[in-house]
Design a protein around this nucleic acid. Structure first.
Lengths: 263, 263
DNA sequence: CGATTGTTTGACGGGTCTCAAACTAAGTGG
DNA sequence: CCACTTAGTTTGAGACCCGTCAAACAATCG
């Protein structure tokens, strides 16, 4: 277990700082968090539902999904995480895996012990709030997913997902011609959308024919961002990614002052 | 704004204590939380998506749902809250409504100012953790709902929802013959399940014909709990309601020691 | 270059939606 | 307490979106 390596915990700090204000001391605590790197192959489960956990998982590289299964074995991916995301900060307060965790592509995971995370949160209310806020944003995404699978047809559903991934991938403003890697199987896409792979394929074909997106290899190219967001009824505000300069046109989030300053 | 009335904040404290350990001092802080009561009629929106909020809403009595709409005006209820639930503790750390809030039946809401909640959380890490944990459990429910609307057919979907509501309503163990009030329109049910009211009606009829449930007036009576949970593929663990004595057969949650005690 | 995995396309079937109307329960005013 | 009104439930017939099954094709990998 390495105990200090700012260059790898840095993306975690950066993610936190897009949504929360941290003091210099708090930043250092985050950067000094201990971790153990772990390589995970595509389609490999590395956490099982119900399992007692002693650490949270940070994605240094790759893409990970949480999922559940039917009695009939049909999978539903309930959320997706990508490089820079701490997947299961929620297990810090409920150390039991709520769902299976599987790498969607080969990924590098950093395991960060709960003990260190709890110590940080307990000593620095600003950190506790930042962690709490991350969990709340993850829940906001879940909320959108319920909306997505519940009340949108296949075309709209796919459009929404692509918008979300595009925004979460991109640091730059999203405009026509923007492309991002999305090395995801149509089967995995189907499991995210509550559809079948066959229907995802046809739906994607439709988007391509209408010149809304294009797919080359495993990269998605956005041809008509406006149409895509309209189709997906997508408003990026819930992602809390930052201001207009994040490329999603959402309102600039005003981070609250740390809790300990509030009297 | 009343500033002390233990008898009304008591249900909030009780809810927290089923999942978190609080010190005597922390309990008193919770009971002394200020609030302003508000009466809300059925089908009345009382929070709009995007709205800046200065308080969270506790349900003293009634039932409330969060929901979104698509362009065609079709609603999706993304989560349901009932008496004893603090609906939007998440807005303490992100004071912007993520979704509309609507009373599903006539309800009594207690508005608790964020300032008081933040002060409590900032001064008492145990309270911060308890709040954070509540948000995480709400997210776990959302996770199940994605699974529900994504990969279960109407019958299974309805069964799962009824199981969830039964567990969240009941203090006693659930057994055949258990009945609980569920004064919800089939239209509202449809919006929770991502179905149409017509299909909800037919599906419910099927459950009645198979002697799995019965409905009299607006009360659901469970005739065959085992069958219902099997149909809904329901495992109550994610609800974190307590031990076997909660009637849901889940594992007894072991609350963590307060964060400040962890070194 | 062969084997495996993922994509694409076609034909058909089924679960759910849509539209419509009858029926029932609940609430309202005289 | 009774007409009246409104909201919610129930049932039927037909249409449609998406699933299922199957097979050909393309891409990836060792």
């Amino acid at each position: 277990m390495r105990t200090s390596c700012p260059s790898t915990m840095l993306p975690f700090l950066q993610k936190l700082e897009t949504r929360s204000i941290l003091t210099e001391e708090e930043k250092r605590i985050i950067l000094d968090l201990p971790f153990r790197p772990m390589r995970v192959a595509a389609n490999q489960d590395f956490v099982q539902q119900g399992e007692e956990l002693t650490h949270s998982c940070f994605i240094l590289e790759g893409m990970v999904g949480t999922f559940g299964q039917n009695k009939r074995g049909e999978r539903q991916i309930t959320s997706v995480f990508m490089a820079g995301d701490m997947i299961d900060l929620n297990t810090v307060v409920i150390p039991q895996a709520i769902a299976d965790l599987q790498a969607l592509i080969p990924s590098t995971i950093l395991q960060v012990p709960h003990s260190a995370l709890r110590r940080a949160a307990g000593q620095y209310p600003g950190i506790a709030e930042a962690f709490w806020r991350e969990c709340v944003i993850d829940a906001a995404v879940l909320n959108e997913w319920v909306m997505n699978v519940g009340r949108r047809d296949a075309r709209s559903r796919l459009a929404h997902l692509l918008c979300e991934i595009a925004c979460r991938t991109g640091r730059k403003p999203i405009e026509d011609g923007y492309s991002f890697p999305f090395p995801i199987t149509q089967n995995q896409l189907a499991d995210m959308l509550g559809l079948t792979a066959v229907h995802v394929n046809r739906t994607m074909k439709g988007l391509r024919e209408d010149k809304i997106i294009d797919t080359v290899h495993r990269t998605v190219k956005i041809l008509n961002w406006i149409r895509l967001t309209q189709l997906g009824e997508f408003d990026p505000a819930y992602l809390r990614l930052g201001g207009a300069d994040s490329g999603c046109g959402g309102p600039v989030p005003v981070p609250l002052p740390p809790m300990q300053m509030v009297q």
